[in-house]
């Protein structure tokens, strides 16, 4: 907290990153968006003793332990984004509400793959959700972002921030072209709790079905609002416990015994 050098360094990073500003460019069929937070992250990494040697071990540890609290300010803003949309969310159709449980699909695909890759506690952070801001805040509060779980959630968060938009745009067009889904179902699925990912997915669908465009955008936006509201509660009470259980059983299957010590749930 009293590490003034750290705060000074971070302030400089913020100023530089914001001065560079947002940049967008076309890549193939999608748009890649570079945000100030991404520059701040990358420049921050390059200050490490391995590269520029601006920060030392204590600075890095202090930064890690502060992260959980800094995220709360963002979460307060997040709540104020969701609040005004609540009346619309409450009037959503049953299809919109029930498809929210589909977001748990990440666990059934993600946990086995993560553990096949040899990840251990990273799995919990990485595979319990698509790792948007509330999930990062939750993992940060429960395990600390400088833990293995924290590395997992940060890894997926960063991947999503860098290429999530383009990936969702592509995935929506592929699903519409090759899978037997109605465009309405795909539009509802697009709302995963990230406005940019949803916009990219719905944008692709609208381009393919221009006559349905208004309806697709409405479903996408409503579903995204819903995910923004239920994502955190679902993570706390359903997704994280489910991920822990699957982790435990796959761990036993793979390593022959239930996880203990560092690998066990905390």
């Amino acid at each position: 907290m009293k590490n003034f050098k750290l705060h000074g360094v971070v302030l400089l990073l913020v100023i530089i990153a914001e001065l560079i500003g947002i940049h967008k460019f076309q890549l193939g069929v999608g748009v890649v968006v570079l945000l100030p937070m991404l520059y701040a992250l990358i420049f921050g990494i390059f200050l490490a003793p391995k590269f520029l040697k601006v920060v030392n071990k204590v600075d890095m540890q202090d930064a890690g332990s502060l992260l959980g609290i800094t995220l709360m300010l963002l979460m307060a803003r997040y709540g104020t984004l969701v609040g005004p949309t609540l009346p619309k969310i409450i009037s959503a159709s049953p299809a919109l509400i029930l498809q929210e449980f589909g977001n748990l699909g990440t666990i059934f695909l993600g946990v086995p793959l993560a553990m096949y890759f040899g990840l251990k506690r990273e799995t919990i952070g990485a595979a319990h959700s698509i790792a948007r801001e509330p999930n990062v805040a939750l993992i940060g509060e429960r395990y600390g972002l400088d833990s293995a779980e924290g590395r997992g959630v940060m890894g997926v968060y960063i991947s999503g921030t860098v290429f999530g938009t383009i990936f969702f745009g592509l995935m929506a067009s592929m699903a519409a072209a090759y899978l037997p889904f109605h465009p309405y179902a795909l539009a509802m699925a697009s709302g995963v709790g990230s406005a940019s990912m949803m916009t990219a997915a719905v944008g692709s669908l609208s381009a393919m079905y221009p006559q349905m465009s208004d309806q697709l955008v409405a479903f996408g936006a409503a579903s995204n609002m819903l995910s923004g509201l239920d994502g955190l509660y679902m993570a706390i009470w359903v997704a994280l416990p489910l991920t822990e259980r699957m982790y435990k059983h796959i761990y036993k299957f793979k390593y022959g015994a239930y996880p203990t010590g560092e690998d066990a749930a905390k």
């Binding site: 302030l11 990073l13 913020v14 937070m37 992250l41 921050g44 990494i45 490490a48 071990k57 300010l73």
Partner: peptide, 20 residues
């Protein structure tokens, strides 16, 4: 919302240096 993300990710970047 994005302005609130920038300082957080700056702290995250500095902290990641430890677990590179």
């Amino acid at each position: 919302f994005l302005a609130l993300c920038t300082p957080i990710l700056a702290y995250a970047g500095v902290s990641i240096g430890k677990d590179l």
